[in-house]
Amino acid sequence: MTSISVLPIILLLVFIGVLFLFSKFIERINNRGKNVKRMLLSYVMILVLATAVYFLLPLDKSIVSDESIDPDTAPSLFHHLNLETLDEVDSSLIRKSWEFDINSDKLQVHFTENDWGSNVPIYLDQVEDLDEKVEAIFYQSPTFVEGVNVADFTALPDIDFSSNTLRIREPAYEDLEFITFKTEFPVRQFTGEKLIEEGFFHGDELIYIRVPEGIDLDIDEEINFVD
């Protein structure tokens, strides 16, 4: 036990004291019966109106998940990468893919990370089944928050190809803010819902580049080879 655990109680008592003085002050300046009745009536009317409006709101505007992927059995992309079975993963995990024609036996792969620092690994694989083509695939498995896959809202990398150079640019870092409404604690205690859910399913993501075998490669050091 430290003094820290008593501190919230002291603060609460101080807060109660301030509220006490405040409520006395409010009552003193507003002790005319008619004023209070009018104030009460207006307040109740606003609350009733707000409740009615709430149920009339177009709630379908909000995001409700229809994801069928079970977070517990959702695949790890890195697991598939290690087993060289990325081509077998569910196509819904491909956020975007790019395909470019290449007419040279030389390829440069240039990577530009954002100011925040890269968080999405890039893997390059030399494969036999590609002919005069370069493929880039952005795989992303779902991240569920409040039952919604928020990964769908995240930004995509910018990938283009010109002059025998594949350029991968990370988008600028941005914090995405979502809102969720919770029921009040006297309701939550009966539903078992928690204000802040303990952890959530965090997916993973990677960029997978496929290039024809035998091509002469010049790549940035951030790009990993698939063994």
Binding site: A151, T154, I179, T180
Partner: peptide, 12 residues
């Protein structure tokens, strides 16, 4: 998550 940070604000 990917290239984004995710913040969820809870209201009640």
């Amino acid at each position: 998550v990917g290239y984004n940070g995710i913040t969820i604000r809870l209201f009640s």
